[in-house]
């Protein structure tokens, strides 16, 4: 009986896993920038348009549709961002867009170089680091305190 249940679980689990989960390395989010991790990508929550501030997401680069980036969402539509190296020191994120940044802000191609990105370019949300085993953890959904949008700082 238990064998049958196990087989059932595997038969059910494999298609779900293949459709909802993908693997990708992400050196851009490692603060030291040396090692690369593999993360689980959850495509379902993006299909349901469930993206919030602080989530780590993978997206198509707006400059090159063949390149995929993995960045942290800093601000959603309507947020006012204090930019780092953008041509405007303060940017209001337009409707349907978001502001993404890498955690390694010195060496990261992010919204500071190409501006706000359309939400439709986001393909998946990173939920957990799966490789190497020493770094097994869930990806925390939080914005670094110094990078919070200006309006979110006022709300606090």
């Amino acid at each position: 009986m238990t064998v049958l249940e196990f087989v059932k679980a595997v038969l059910f689990g494999i298609p779900v896993g293949v459709t909802a989960v993908d693997l990708l390395g992400y050196p851009a989010l490692n603060p030291d920038g040396k090692s690369s991790d593999y993360v689980f990508l959850n495509r379902l929550s993006v299909r349901l348009h469930d993206v919030s501030r602080g989530d780590v997401v993978s997206l198509f680069s707006p400059k090159d549709p063949h390149q995929k980036l993995i960045k942290r969402v800093i601000g959603l539509e309507g947020d006012i961002i204090n930019t780092l190296s953008h041509r405007n020191p303060v940017v209001k994120v337009p409707k349907g867009h978001c502001w993404v940044e890498g955690d390694n802000s010195d060496n990261s191609m992010d919204s500071n170089s190409f501006g706000p990105v359309a939400l439709a370019l986001i393909t998946a949300k990173a939920t957990a680091v799966v490789w190497p085993p020493s770094r097994w953890c869930y990806v925390q959904s939080e914005v670094p305190r110094l990078r919070l949008p200006l309006n979110a700082r006022l709300e606090r």
Binding site: H49, P65, P94, K95, G96, H97, A118, A120, I122
Partner: peptide, 19 residues
């Protein structure tokens, strides 16, 4: 097709609203 040419009709996600 990955190559989009001038004059093609395409379906794209709206920039204002991802739905």
């Amino acid at each position: 097709t990955k190559s989009i040419m001038r004059g093609d009709i395409v379906i794209a996600c709206s920039t204002n609203d991802p739905t």
